[in-house]
Simulated scan of single mutants.
Amino acid sequence: MQLSDIRIYPLKSGSGSSRESAVVEPWGLAGDRRWAVIGAGGDDLRLGEFPKKLTVTARNLADGGLALTAPGMPDLTLPPAEGGQRVPVGFSGLDHAVLAAPQAHGWFTWLLGHPARLVWLDDPRRRPVAPRHGGLPGDTVSFASDAPLLLTSLSSLKRLDEWIIEGAAERGEDPPQPLEMARFRPSVVIDGAEPYEEDGWAEVRIGEVDFRVTVICDRCAVTMIDPATAMKGREPLRTLARHRKWDGKTWFGIRLVPRNTGAISVGDPVTPLRRR
């Protein structure tokens, strides 16, 4: 097994970009999800309600600022938020974040058609991984949902696509196009495992970095939004509910907490260290 893709999402719920390598920090990949969009009251503007966030491409700048692009919007370059105003936020385990430059708020308000502000997480060590998601004392996370990293497998996606095609045939429908892995918003994608083999892992090593598996990832309606069009369909939850549903939820991928830090690169070996 080997690492086949690494994806960074500078903006929570924004589009991701593939990298050949990345640095693993205690709270996730360096540069991943340190920025987020909130409402006027500090609430998280969730992707399911505001799918246009998927159309935003955010790029971390060397000086700590952020570059933003989106279809139909002017490009925007923001300075670092360091030293900005602290405001209350509604993310679990976190009481406040730092406001970005004022021009960001108008940009996102126009894009989403809803009052919005951009915030930066100054210190990810302030946000713990929730115990209900497998967090232990000392585990921390950025603005990412529930764990520092999410691992998915190409073979598991291939099996899911096969199930979707089988279901379409049973309904007399034309076979759909394969799903993009981007729907599942992984941090790392592996190749060479058996389909859903990752479900049974308790610890895994990627390159020279060890990870503890906290939980299998339960999937929400966000996966039904096509990242290319921001339009919502019925897959993959319809098919996951048929083949991968238990405890009232559907499941795809596993959540990881780093045991140590270091660099990982595409092509690194992936080795399960302990199974459940």
Rank of each mutant, 00 (worst) to 15 (best):
L76V: 07
A40S: 14
A144Y: 03
D95W: 06
P115D: 04
F211T: 08
R274A: 14
W163G: 10
A81R: 14
C217E: 13
H105Y: 10
P258C: 09
V209S: 11
D139Y: 06
T223D: 01
P137H: 13
L68I: 12
G41S: 14
L61C: 09
G262E: 08
A101Q: 15
W246Y: 13
R219T: 02
R19F: 12
F91K: 11
D268Y: 07
D161I: 15
S145T: 11
L45N: 01
D226A: 14
R86G: 01
N260C: 07
R238G: 06
L179A: 03
T55Y: 03
T140E: 12
R244G: 04
P10R: 08
I206S: 03
A193Y: 10
P115T: 13
G200P: 06
R19P: 14
R205A: 15
V266T: 01
D199E: 10
A147T: 12
P195T: 07
I216E: 00
E166G: 14
T69M: 15
D5G: 01
V213N: 01
P128E: 15
A62C: 11
V213A: 09
D63Q: 15
A116G: 04
W246S: 08
R127H: 07
E166T: 06
F91T: 06
L237R: 00
Y196M: 14
E173I: 08
T109I: 11
W246C: 14
F252C: 03
E25D: 11
L61N: 14
M1Q: 09
P175Q: 08
S17Q: 10
T140I: 15
M224K: 01
T250M: 00
P236M: 14
H133S: 10
E170R: 06
V204F: 04
G39Y: 03
R171V: 09
V270Y: 00
R185E: 09
G83V: 01
L76Y: 10
D146V: 06
